[in-house]
Design a protein around this nucleic acid. Sequence first.
DNA 1: CCGAGTACATAACAAACGTTCGGTACGTAC
DNA 2: GTACGTACCGAACGTTTGTTATGTACTCGG
Lengths: 194, 194
Amino acid sequence: MPAKTDHDARRRDVSAAVGRVLAAQGFGGLTLRAVAAELGATTGLVTHYFPSKQALIVHALEVAEAHTRALVPSLEGVHGLEALRQALAAVLPLTPEGTEINRVWVSSWDAALADPELHALEKARYKRWRSRLKPFVVEAQNDGDLPPGDPDDLVAALAAFTHGLVVQALFDPRLFTHKRLLVLLASHLEALRI
Amino acid sequence: MPAKTDHDARRRDVSAAVGRVLAAQGFGGLTLRAVAAELGATTGLVTHYFPSKQALIVHALEVAEAHTRALVPSLEGVHGLEALRQALAAVLPLTPEGTEINRVWVSSWDAALADPELHALEKARYKRWRSRLKPFVVEAQNDGDLPPGDPDDLVAALAAFTHGLVVQALFDPRLFTHKRLLVLLASHLEALRI
DNA sequence: CCGAGTACATAACAAACGTTCGGTACGTAC
DNA sequence: GTACGTACCGAACGTTTGTTATGTACTCGG
């Protein structure tokens, strides 16, 4: 009875289109018709795969998270402070792709602060990010490359530094070039060194 | 010929209502009707004082900036690292008022990334903020409380740290309490000490 | 080849949007 | 007192929104 199309793959296509609209227009410009146009289809297709706009957004942000995580290089064989540096550098808007996905994240904060469900999801996402960074921080502390103290505090501070840099870079890419972002990150980690 | 009402004061009233709607609903929920309702008036009043929604937003963000700056305590007699700490602490969401205005700022980034005019204004705002912090950084460097090097880099890093902390705190106020935010800021500055 | 069910297009729907505008009330200037 | 300009209401305008319903083409299991 089922037709041929790959349902899950098509859902991912739709979500990808949402991501592109979001990166270009922000949440204010995210409409079902814009998504459909980006996809070269109609709103009928979109609503066929997602019951509501809210569900569409939620899924699109999940896909974006997976995408973001995929930008982090393999850190096998890399440890401590250097692994931390690479993990944080992967988040910076160093490529057009990185810039686009960061635009999506920053844009999503508006909706996430207003909507309870999105708020909870973003809060959980931050928790996941910090817990993914934590082992590297602990390692760096054990190596004597970072000062002792509650690693959770250090992780939060480093996540803050990185995302704060992302925001400034999005608004002034001319001032925060690829090279300068990496220098700022590296010298920041260096400054924290004991 | 002119009637009695204080035009500028009324414009500020409208902008304040925009701020309240923005803090509660974000840009997605910012409509002329919501602003009018918040003001206990009609859309006619709003459009009487602002030619368009865009102009309304621009003015509301200007008012918000003035408001934000007013939250910074007098730093007369305070210098160097301690002045820097106080200036940055003033930005953190430590009070309901501070939380509300930070919600407005973070929400505004969605629209600011999508609209050229708002983008330019936000970019300029960041520049102003950094240049206001810079003297304190230079002072702290001269005092030997902060490492030497390009003060612009240090300012950008500290602005990044602070705003990144703001975002995390907005999404998880339970985890980032008033006390912890201040501790994180203080120990971060301490960690940068030579 | 034939029902059944999926994959969409197309179109309609009420609701909500920003903007525009006529109308009323009320000061002020002369 | 009359004329004029401001302040604001209330409603209408056309557009756009998310959602829902209808219709058609196609693919499969039997």
